[in-house]
């Protein structure tokens, strides 16, 4: 069993999905934490400081490359696996489907939910990451005022709505993904399942509320 066999078998592919997914879960925690600085109600001073740290620290910029790599691996592997799995049914489907009698709709819709997140992600990078990094150049140059940028973007109801849809997709993706990742890595048994599900739910609710409140806080002028 060499490495390429190990990671390309039906179980190996899932190990890649789970590891990259868990990395993204860790990233979102950091991301949400930084964004929460807007609720310092100091006109964005603390938020911009946090953003500056992330944008101008060499270690963070290197980690950022890793983040992109994991995102790409997760997305490409996810889409490839979904297409491969679909082809295994054969030419005919069932006339009467099992539907929701055995599984949750979102557990069967991970790729669609993932693509919704991807759509959101592209818009999101276009709003903040690209303008900021292009202003900075490849090195650690001057940053734009991200707080001001947020205020502007989130005065537009279209973007507020799109961000909300993105977060809802994330909520359902993680409702299945969090516990699925642990089972894939073989860490689930009767003893741990309750802990995994509880932690997953708390994580999911906290992260999604934090993210959804950002555009809303700006739109309604709660954060100035």
């Amino acid at each position: 069993m060499n490495w390429s066999h190990f990671f390309t078998s039906s179980v190996g592919k899932k190990i890649i999905m789970a590891c990259s997914g868990l990395f993204l879960i860790a990233f979102l925690l950091v991301h949400a934490g930084l964004n929460a600085c807007i609720w310092a109600f100091d006109g964005g001073e603390m938020f911009n400081k946090a953003g500056h740290f992330m944008g101008s620290t060499v270690v963070m910029r290197i980690l950022e490359i890793g983040l992109f790599v994991f995102f790409i691996i997760h997305i490409v592997q996810g889409v490839v696996m979904e297409l491969q799995n679909r082809s295994k049914r054969g030419s005919k489907g069932y006339a009467v489907a099992l539907g929701n009698r055995g599984s949750k709709w979102y557990s069967r819709s991970m790729a669609i939910l993932g693509l919704l997140i991807l759509l959101f992600l592209i818009v999101h990078l276009g709003h903040f990451w690209i303008p900021n990094r292009s202003n900075q150049g490849w090195l650690l140059g001057e940053e734009i005022n991200l707080f001001k940028e947020m205020k502007e973007v989130f005065s537009n109801p279209v973007w507020v709505l799109l961000y909300t849809v993105g977060v809802i997709a994330l909520f359902y993706h993680l409702s299945h993904g969090f516990q699925s990742a642990f089972r894939t890595l073989g860490l689930t048994n009767h003893k741990y399942i309750n802990i995994i599900q509880t932690v997953g739910l708390i994580y999911n609710v906290v992260i999604c509320i934090a993210f959804i409140m950002m555009p809303i806080s700006f739109y309604f002028g709660w954060v100035q």
Binding site: V11, R108, M110
Partner: peptide, 11 residues
Amino acid sequence: GSCTNTGACEA
């Protein structure tokens, strides 16, 4: 195919 832990099998 690959297992995506939907749980339909167990049901």
